[in-house]
Nucleic acid binder design. Structure first.
Lengths: 371, 371
DNA sequence: CTGAAAGCGCTTACAG
DNA sequence: CTGAAAGCGCTTACAG
């Protein structure tokens, strides 16, 4: 390959064909795995290609095929272990079908998300998996539809798009189970630390619509449902709002704990909030779990190494990604559900993966008041 | 856009040009941001494009430009928080320059890595960032060179490729600092939990070559250096080997702790091994940190919520990715360092980011033996 | 400022 | 099995 050292362009099929003494059509057939070529010619072409260090140009190929063998994954934060795991699930799954992943990170910024959609469309990926940061704004998702691009919603539902495949966690149900667990141990004053804190009235008003809520809201709904089933009123003071930032969450939680001694249990609705809540409890000076119980969300590795070990709702993040990828691959093979031309296409599927309550030692029966 | 409902292909520039009553050249100029077009024509073309729901085809554009505005990132495990953070750094950085990221996960499998290189080359990305799983096998990296593709090594050095930009952590130096910290507290029987355990003789033989070692080996070298500086012999029994799997690491560490009561300190060389070691210490029944000290690697969130809080070496994973991306962007702009045609090209740069020892409460002076 | 023509690097009918 | 020609959807000289 030394002779290429000073050459500026990659060799193309034309050079390979010339080197092998065949037409570009034949060279293409020998190298591209399509059409018919005699073994002898094929061998000659392969040798020529190797000599020149030929690499097929995927752009040209895709331009003709109409397939890039790539999908886009749009998430709000790849650095978050939850999405990192989901992404791993996607990558592993699509790899088996020969697809690559084009990654977009939006930071829950609508403009970034719109831009991601525009770019993935221009890059002509074969499909997309999207965890939207703004379920209410769906114009950019409409453009996916207009472009007839198969896509799947991951983790965050989009109420306006019931015709799109989706893979979610059973957020409300699992949150309800978590809170019920606390109730069963006698807790009544149960605080919830949530990113959806400010939407309590909205959430409480449409408890039957949990599936259309984003995860944080759905988990808050689960809390409300459990409390109501126990005939307890919702005390807004117990619903603590915090963004997905550990320190802020810890402070918010600590503040409630300091202000209200009657709180005997905390339910944190996400992995970041969980670590913040755990920290707040440690800082509160209360005996944990004797004086206060906690259930966290997302079974991170650290939850078994802290003392007390944390009772959590374990959500299958890796599987979430893998399932989304599976649905997308099916959709790529069959065409979008909303294509009326074809009646044989699978209906949109809405997968809801169960999350599991893992009981450990951070939850204990409600403390007996000392007289 | 209703009229497109039953149409099977995306509209191309030809349709837009026809709709606007201009040539494709003019339409292209109006939409593509190149060449000169009169404001009036431009407006007419834009209107036509909007009416047809036109999306430029990036494949065709890239085929001509010779640029895809995409880079590849090849890592061993996106699910690992370290790589997830580094990836975030890369994405954030290249985004500012208008590049997207094509992600490859190799699981440290050489075939997967070779395949990644082949595919990224075929997809004609503009550059690549690679954390190789097998620094010894470099033929596939040669093919990047042959293809004149700019690339940067991330986290894992490749001894054979001194002419390639790289961004690493100062692994040996920071490991040395960590062990020196333990020594300064009087510890002598210091165990090290490492993925490179089996290479102790090899590592001990080339302590001056730390920069060419993969992280685990370099950290082990730092341990050896610190011990030797303290005039202590290396006891192979204290060098515990474990793969990057928490349970296996915990078991291996526990075994040593049970077998050898003389061990008073543990240095774990990675985030997975750290949690395993922490767990092993908890299970050992020793008083922590009174009877045994520990330094971990990688400042994960959990390290401040466990008791005792973990003293760690904090490595800047996000910045690692961002810096690698920065170098790559520069290289993409200037062409590869090994291109002899151009003398004005920047020399290969080998960035070594410092890692910092964060002292917390898992390290304490060596226990006084009780008589 | 605008257009006709060539070309990026492949694959695909269509003949032979 | 093989090749000449057309074409995927753009951009780029080159004229006008």
């Amino acid at each position: 390959m030394r002779e290429r050292e000073h050459q500026t362009r990659e060799p193309s099929l034309i050079e390979v064909a010339a080197e092998a003494g065949v037409s570009t059509a034949t060279a293409g057939r020998a190298l591209g795995g399509y059409g018919q070529v005699s073994p002898a010619t094929a061998e000659r072409v392969r040798a020529a290609a190797a000599r020149l260090g030929y690499r097929p140009n995927g752009l040209a190929r895709s331009l003709i095929n109409g397939s890039t063998q790539a999908i886009a994954v749009v998430v709000t934060d790849v650095g978050n272990p939850f999405f990192a795991q989901a992404l791993r699930g996607v990558v592993d799954k699509v790899r088996t079908a020969g697809y690559e992943v084009l990654l977009f990170n939006t930071d829950s910024n609508l403009d970034a998300e719109r831009n991601a959609v525009r770019v993935l469309l221009e890059k002509r990926v074969d499909g997309a998996i999207i965890a939207t940061g703004s379920p209410a704004d769906t114009e950019h998702l409409d453009s996916l539809r207009d472009a007839r691009l198969p896509f799947v919603l991951l983790d965050r539902p989009v109420p306006d798009r019931p015709d799109v495949d989706s893979v979610m966690i059973a957020n409300a149900a699992s949150a309800r189970t978590a809170v019920r667990h606390l109730l069963s141990q006698g807790h009544r004053r149960i605080a919830v630390l949530t990113e959806a804190g400010r939407e309590l009235p909205y959430v409480a008003d449409r408890l039957s619509d949990c599936r259309t809520m984003r995860p944080s809201a759905a988990r808050l709904a689960g809390y409300v449902l459990a409390m109501r089933s126990a005939r307890l009123d919702i005390d807004p003071a117990l619903v603590v709002h915090a963004p997905y930032q550990r320190e802020i969450a810890a402070r918010a939680m600590k503040k409630l704990l300091d202000a209200d001694p009657s709180v005997t249990a905390v339910f944190a609705t996400d992995n970041v909030l969980s670590i913040g809540a755990y920290q707040a409890i440690q800082a509160s000076g209360r005996r944990f779990p004797d004086e206060i119980s906690m259930v966290g969300f997302d079974d991170q590795e650290w939850t078994t190494v802290v003392r007390p070990q944390l009772t959590v709702v374990r959500q299958p993040s890796y599987e979430l990604g893998a399932r989304a990828a599976g649905l997308l691959l099916r959709r790529i093979a069959n065409g979008p559900a909303w294509d009326r031309d074809a009646d044989d296409r699978p209906d949109p599927e809405h997968v809801e993966l169960p999350a599991q309550l893992i009981r450990r030692s951070s939850t204990a029966p409600v403390p007996v008041p000392s007289f």
